[in-house]
């Protein structure tokens, strides 16, 4: 394993990303970024067998279009982590913000704490590409909006009442699980709450265990709790909208 350490302090993202590219081209398999302070676009579009460790706050669009690498952030991230990501793993030891996993097609994102608005928006799945977003805390409004595939799991570890409004607005594929209750009035147009089946419980258990491994949390009390499952009412919500259908 070849490890490269870069002190990111005061370095513009463009320069930093070229340094990362150079390191990858030089055969680095692990890159450690110290003192990251909002630099954007880290590992965007990177398709390489490489591990990135970010110390500090990663800027917008971390791992956008990413295809393979593993990223660990010791800090928070800004908007758009995993935007249109195809493959890979992002583990965030902090909070995520808006549009986590926007249009993500594959790979996994684990956030230790809370996530912001429109998380999992337009996530999709395709063949064995199955995107996963897990947050340990809570999520804000429009969770899983326009979702077309994959899974969003909100563990709500602090047990605060879930208040994110418009959950699953326009959802037409995939599934959202929220630990605890999601009152009916918080569901968006096109979304419905249903009972969990054995397969749901199995998936939640696996993902909670994975969460537990990354963040050193005992998953048992989490996955043994009650969850609300939110799915699309229809996979073709707009089928009757046009005169030709």
């Amino acid at each position: 394993m070849k490890e490269v350490v870069i002190d990111s302090k005061g370095i513009h993202y463009k320069v930093l990303n070229f340094m990362i590219e150079d390191a990858i081209n030089a055969g680095a398999t692990k890159i450690v970024l110290e003192n990251v302070n909002g630099q954007r676009f880290l590992l965007d579009g990177v398709n390489a067998d490489v591990e990135l460790e970010v110390h500090g706050t990663a800027g917008d669009d971390l791992a956008a279009f990413m295809n393979g690498p593993r990223v660990t952030v010791y800090g928070n991230v800004q908007d758009g982590v995993g935007n249109t990501m195809n493959r890979g793993l992002v583990v965030i030891h902090g909070d995520g913000r808006d549009i986590v996993g926007h249009s993500m097609r594959g790979g996994k994102i684990f956030v230790k704490g809370d996530v912001g608005y429109r998380v999992g928006i337009h996530m999709k799945q395709y063949e064995d590409n199955y995107p996963v977003v897990v947050a340990g805390g809570t999520a804000m409004d429009f969770l899983g909006e326009y979702m077309a595939g994959g899974v969003v799991l909100i563990l709500n570890i602090g047990d605060a009442p879930f208040t994110g409004d418009w959950v699953g607005t326009g959802i037409h594929g995939g599934v959202i699980y929220v630990r605890g209750d999601v009152p009916e009035f918080l569901l968006g147009i096109g979304a419905k709450a249903t009972d969990l089946e054995a397969s749901d419980k199995k998936l939640i258990k696996e993902l909670a265990e994975e969460y537990g491994r990354y963040f050193g949390v005992d998953p048992k009390p989490i996955y043994e709790s009650r969850f609300t499952k939110i799915v699309p009412i229809s996979h073709r919500p707009y089928a009757k909208m046009y005169t030709d259908d």
Binding site: Y13, K14, N17, R40, F41, D44, G45, D60, D61, A64, F65, D79, G80, N83, I99, H102, S103, R118, I121, H122, E145, Y146, A148, G170, H172, H235, R236, P237, Y238, A239
Partner: peptide
């Protein structure tokens, strides 16, 4: 169904557009 939403959900301003432009340039 392949639904293309009216807006890009990561773009609500010129600043956001710039972010997508540079995300693509970086990628």
């Amino acid at each position: 169904d392949a639904l293309s939403p009216a807006p890009h959900h990561d773009i609500y301003s010129i600043e956001d557009l710039s972010r997508l432009i540079y995300a693509i340039k970086e990628a």
